[in-house]
Simulated scan of single mutants.
Amino acid sequence: MSVDMFWRRVDPGVVQGLEPAELRTLVPYWYDDRFQQETTARITVGAEDTGALIGELLRLGAGDGPDAYGAWLAVDGADGLGGDHMVGVLTPEEVAKATEFLSRAEPAALMQQLRPKLAVAAREMGYKRAFDDEWAQTVVADTQDLTELFRLAGAAGEAVIVAMVA
């Protein structure tokens, strides 16, 4: 199983009324010329093969308490993400809620605390690869990049497009 996730900051007016296929064109993929430029500019974040694990780390870290909604929003809560095109949009209000949770989450500490549970989740998701130190570090780094993207989007009142490639 492989789940790549992409998040892109965008002015909310740009995405208003767009169809999923149109939204998809706004999010660069690994081999798109824009991807590296937008990553460097902290407009886009990509998580290769760690998207579902980032979501699991955040959800486990949030638990069933008041942070659960913000954790869910950051990875899986974009309106339209569950559709055929696997692309959706978080409104500025949803971005603010996710940012609020992410600003308190500490990915490295969560990984240290929850790594055994994340390893079980990876197996249950169908990953064949062992959940080793390198993979755990990649999930933490990707989560930190995601946190920074949401911090910037929240501060600017932006929407975030979320795209999943499985």
Rank of each mutant, 00 (worst) to 15 (best):
T147N: 03
L81V: 13
Y69P: 07
G82Y: 15
T138R: 09
A155D: 05
P66L: 13
L152F: 13
G126S: 14
D76Y: 12
F131K: 06
D79M: 13
A68R: 05
P107I: 09
L60Y: 14
G83D: 15
R151I: 06
V89N: 06
K97G: 00
G157M: 09
A159L: 02
R123F: 06
L102F: 03
G83E: 13
D67E: 10
A71M: 05
V120A: 14
T138K: 10
K117Q: 12
D67C: 04
L110S: 04
G126T: 09
P116Y: 12
G61Q: 03
H85Y: 14
G83K: 11
M125I: 08
R129Y: 04
E158F: 02
E100Q: 15
L60G: 01
P107W: 10
A62S: 15
I161L: 14
A119H: 05
L102N: 07
A130Q: 04
V160G: 01
M164D: 02
E134G: 08
E56V: 08
Y69R: 07
D79C: 02
M125V: 01
L149K: 00
Q112D: 14
R104W: 08
T138D: 04
I161S: 02
Q112L: 07
V140H: 01
D133V: 04
G154P: 02
E148W: 00
A119F: 06
M164N: 02
L152E: 08
F101K: 01
L149D: 03
V87K: 14
R129G: 11
G157Q: 11
A141H: 06
M111Q: 08
G55R: 06
E94A: 06
A109G: 08
L81I: 14
A141I: 00
L149T: 11
L58W: 10
S103L: 08
R151C: 01
G65P: 00
M86Q: 15
R151L: 01
E158R: 07
L53P: 03
F131S: 13
G65V: 13
L146C: 08
H85R: 06
T147M: 12
A163R: 06
T147Q: 11
T91S: 13
L114Q: 14
V89M: 03
A96N: 05
G126Q: 09
V139P: 03
D64P: 11
L60I: 02
Q112P: 12
T138C: 06
S103F: 05
V89I: 09
V89E: 01
F131T: 05
T143P: 02
A122S: 15
Y69K: 07
G77W: 11
Q113E: 07
L53A: 03
M125Q: 10
L53S: 10
I161F: 13
L146T: 11
A119W: 01
Q112S: 14
V75C: 09
A105L: 11
W72H: 14
D132E: 15
A68T: 02
D64V: 03
G77A: 13
V160T: 05
